[in-house]
């Protein structure tokens, strides 16, 4: 386990790495920090810290892509897949494998080169294909700064490695669980930042001769956000330590809702300045909506939680509860 001093130093270094203006890929910059050793030593603390800070600094670096590949490679016991690009659900349609060819439609954060691309086909199997066989187009996104690319193409089955059945499902679930935990951390980072920043702003902004933070209407808004943020942060922490599917599902659902609520409350506190490009808030607002929609938005996850509770007829434990 990392001690507090080491953790503080790590936070400082990561904040620098996430905010410096450079074109060097995040993985290379993390490499200079000896990141692999830090992760090997205490993966939960290291990744929790990275993704929470990524949310806090609204960094657009692709940290998630490599983690999804690592989780998938680990679950499948195939080290070659650590360099893979994992395709996420595309708004334009699914990928499918029919009559001897694979049709790909997926969204990724970094364009693949000649590394493997893994996509989920027909909602069950996994297909692995070389990235250079696909067409990659940058999307105009709601976020604007977080790069997203659409991968499309049709590839003959002879060039596709297909992973089927339970192996595929189990590996994909493990990856989704890992990804949901990391996204929960990132959303918590956003929610914390936005809530703290709104609290600071209302303490400084003067109307009617007083800081607007003295008005209870705004105090209650920030307190409302804070309650959700604190709850979401604890669930995200727990999801990291337990590593189980249910905890990650609950953590992601709560974190998405917390970030959305924090943004809504904060925006009302900022007033008109919150609708401008010059204020930092819009980055956090738009990022929230994109991250929430990765690997299941909070409303869909809530439904999943409800279905699970009704089907299993018992309430699963979270932590010591």
């Amino acid at each position: 386990m990392m001690d507090n001093d080491t953790l503080d130093m790590l936070r400082t270094s990561l904040r620098h790495v996430l905010t410096e203006a450079t074109n060097v890929p995040l993985a290379d910059r993390l490499g200079e920090l000896g990141w692999d050793e830090v992760v090997a030593d205490d993966p939960v603390t290291a990744l929790h810290t990275l993704f929470t800070l990524k949310g806090d600094t609204v960094s657009s670096a692709d940290a998630l892509g490599p983690r999804l590949a690592a989780a998938l490679a680990d679950a499948l016991g195939d080290p070659q897949l650590t360099t893979a690009t994992v395709g996420m659900e595309s708004p334009f349609g699914p990928s499918s494998l029919t009559d001897g060819s694979l049709t790909v439609d997926a969204v990724v954060f970094t364009p693949p080169s000649d590394n493997p691309v893994v996509v989920r086909v027909d909602g069950e199997h996994l297909a692995v294909v070389v990235g250079s066989a696909l067409t990659c187009t940058r999307l105009t996104t709601t976020d604007g700064e977080l790069a997203q690319f659409r991968l499309t193409g049709t590839v003959p089955a002879s060039q596709v490695q297909c992973i089927e059945g339970a192996t595929a499902s189990i590996a994909w679930s493990a990856m989704v669980t890992h990804g949901r935990w990391l996204l929960a951390c990132e959303l918590v980072g956003i929610a914390q930042h936005v809530t703290d920043s709104a609290a600071q702003y209302t303490g400084e902004r003067i109307q009617y001769g007083k800081p607007i933070g003295t008005f209870q209407a705004l105090q209650h808004r920030i307190a409302t956000a804070h309650v959700l943020v604190v709850g979401a942060a604890r669930l995200a922490e727990h999801a990291g330590h337990s590593g189980d599917e249910w905890s990650a599902l609950v953590a992601k659902a709560v974190a998405g809702q917390a970030a959305e609520t924090a943004c809504t409350q904060a925006q009302q506190c900022y007033g008109a300045i919150g609708f401008t490009w010059e204020h930092e808030f819009h980055h956090y607002l738009r990022r929230t909506y994109v991250l929430d929609r990765l690997l299941g938005d909070w409303r869909s996850l809530e439904r999943e939680i409800g279905n699970e509770l009704m089907n299993s007829r018992h309430v699963p434990k979270i932590g010591m509860l």
Binding site: P91, T140, D297
Partner: peptide
């Protein structure tokens, strides 16, 4: 109007992340 806009964004699903 905010509730209505939230609902529309939910119905758009993943499409809400791409501007078209």
């Amino acid at each position: 109007h905010q509730v209505l806009a939230d609902l529309a964004m939910e119905l758009l699903g993943p499409e809400a992340t791409v501007r078209e």
